[in-house]
Amino acid sequence: NLRWTSEAKTKLKNIPFFARSQAKARIEQLARQAEQDIVTPELVEQARLEFG
């Protein structure tokens, strides 16, 4: 299971509600691909840039 830093959680809250669950799934996918067990603000930002 993935842990989220408080900064990453804050960044996730800045994503519009309607896109948040999809973004969260993508962020967690990116973390797993990078073999990380902690979601960082950088991963959230990477996903945000993908979504535009």
Rank of each mutant, 00 (worst) to 15 (best):
A19K: 13
A47C: 05
R3W: 08
L2H: 02
A8M: 01
P16N: 04
A47V: 15
G52Q: 15
F51E: 04
R3G: 04
E28L: 04
I38K: 05
A25C: 08
E28S: 02
Q33D: 12
S6C: 07
E45H: 06
E35K: 15
P41A: 15
K13F: 12
E50N: 07
K24Q: 05
L30F: 09
G52S: 15
N14K: 14
A8Q: 01
S21T: 10
T5D: 05
A19P: 03
T5V: 04
E35N: 15
L12W: 08
A8W: 01
L2S: 02
A34Y: 14
A47T: 06
R3A: 10
F18V: 08
E28M: 04
A23P: 00
R26N: 04
P41S: 12
L30A: 04
A34S: 12
R48E: 11
T5W: 01
I38L: 10
I38Y: 09
L49A: 10
L43S: 02
T10W: 10
L43Y: 05
W4C: 00
E50Y: 09
K13Y: 13
L12N: 01
E28I: 07
I15A: 03
I27N: 00
R32F: 09
L43H: 06
T40K: 03
W4A: 00
S6F: 10
Q22R: 14
R20G: 02
A25F: 12
Q22W: 12
F51K: 05
Q36T: 15
R48S: 11
L30G: 01
E50R: 05
L43K: 02
K24P: 01
K13M: 15
L12V: 03
W4Y: 02
E50I: 11
R20P: 02
G52I: 15
N1R: 08
K11I: 13
Q36N: 06
R32D: 03
F17P: 11
F51C: 06
K11N: 06
R26C: 04
S21K: 14
R26I: 10
E7Q: 09
A19T: 08
F51V: 07
S21P: 07
A19R: 13
L30E: 02
K24W: 03
N1H: 13
D37S: 12
T10D: 14
F17H: 11
R48G: 10
A25G: 05
T10V: 12
V39W: 00
I15C: 03
F18E: 10
E28Y: 03
F51Y: 12
A25Q: 12
I15S: 02
V39Q: 00
A8D: 00
A8H: 01
D37F: 14
A34D: 04
V44N: 00
S6E: 15
E7P: 04
Q33H: 08
V44P: 00
P41M: 09
S21Q: 12
A47G: 06
E42T: 05
Q46D: 04
V39D: 00
T10K: 15
A31W: 01
A25T: 09
Q29C: 06
Q22C: 09
R32E: 06
E42S: 06
L49E: 08
E28G: 02
W4Q: 00
F18L: 09
A8L: 01
D37T: 15
